[in-house]
């Protein structure tokens, strides 16, 4: 496409600058020797001392471990529930309760987190009074809350992936005598694998990152990583948080690039298979 003018490109560059300037400044200052985060101590920098301090901070390490465990369980649960939801919405046509299901998968995407957090906490307290479970707030309540809000994201990803393929593949399998569970396992599931991978990763980051909902349902005993970071930075900037942020950004960037390459490779392989199949039919 030509003739789109220079203006959109100028905005693009400004926009990317806006998106990346804070991250880059944070990375640079994580190497700063001074405790005064924004004053560059040229004599003693760059230094890795905040990274060293980070690795000795038990509070942060414990919180990170808790967050990792929650994120793994929550994203796995969310992938299961989200896949069922996505398949139902994309493949089952109109069914009773579909409108409700659509509403319950799109509304949580935009629902302000304070409302969801308050509602879930009140649910857990009510349940505790009624049936004595879950016993106290903590690991279980956080995980249940995270599964719930991650599910909707997975459902959207799976549904849009399935919308990209028409149902003729499944119908062909049925015509050849495959029963519905076989069709699901052998045809539908392989189609959505990329969506499951990105849904899982998305859920992991959402769970790993969530502060507001977690703060409501966490109870006094358990602090996830975002909770520890938030209580630290509320008191002002701290250089070890810069170091932590840099590590997280680098980790995520690596993950994204690797998964993009993997997806690309998958797509190429599929195209090649399609070409081979077409060639075989000639």
């Amino acid at each position: 496409m030509k003739r789109s003018g220079a203006f959109p490109w100028v905005m693009m560059v400004l926009g990317l600058l806006f998106l990346y300037a804070p991250i880059i400044s944070m990375m640079v200052f994580s190497l700063n020797n001074s405790r005064l985060v924004t004053v560059w101590d040229a004599a003693h920098s760059p230094t890795l001392k905040w990274y060293g301090e980070l690795l000795q901070n038990d509070e942060i390490l414990d919180a990170a471990w808790l967050s990792i465990r929650i994120a793994i369980i929550a994203s796995t649960g969310a992938v299961i529930l989200g896949t069922l939801t996505g398949v139902a919405l994309a493949r089952f046509g109109p069914f009773r309760g579909r409108t409700l299901m659509v509403g319950m998968t799109t509304a949580p995407l935009v629902m302000p987190e304070v409302i969801t957090g308050l509602a879930l906490l009140l649910l857990f307290i009510t349940l505790q009074q009624a049936i004595g479970w879950p016993h106290g707030a903590g690991f279980i309540t956080i995980t249940l809350a995270h599964i719930t809000f991650c599910t909707t994201y997975v459902a959207v990803v799976v549904q849009s992936r399935l919308a990209g393929f028409d149902e003729s593949l499944e119908e062909a399998a049925m015509d050849l005598g495959a029963r519905p569970p076989t069709v699901f396992l052998r045809v539908t599931l392989p189609l959505v694998v990329p969506a499951l991978v990105s849904g899982w990763l998305l859920s992991f980051t959402l769970s790993w990152d969530d502060l507001v909902i977690t703060q409501f349902v966490a109870g006094p005993g358990s602090s996830t990583l975002p909770m520890v970071i938030f209580s630290k930075v509320r008191l002002g900037v701290s250089p070890d948080v810069n170091a932590l942020a840099t590590l997280m950004v680098l980790l995520v960037a690596t993950g994204i690039v690797v998964s993009a390459i993997w997806m690309n490779w998958q797509n190429r392989r599929r195209e090649r298979d399609a070409q081979l199949a077409a060639a075989a039919n000639l």
């Binding site: 998106l19 990346y20 991250i23 944070m26 942020a245 993950g255």
Partner: peptide
């Protein structure tokens, strides 16, 4: 990818990064 990449990194930390940029000093 450049637009989506920050979206995958911690929201809390990205907001925190602005404190360092916007502060008095």
């Amino acid at each position: 990818m450049l637009v989506v990449l920050p979206f995958w990194t911690s929201f809390l930390l990205r907001v925190y990064a602005w404190i360092g940029l916007l502060k008095h000093n």
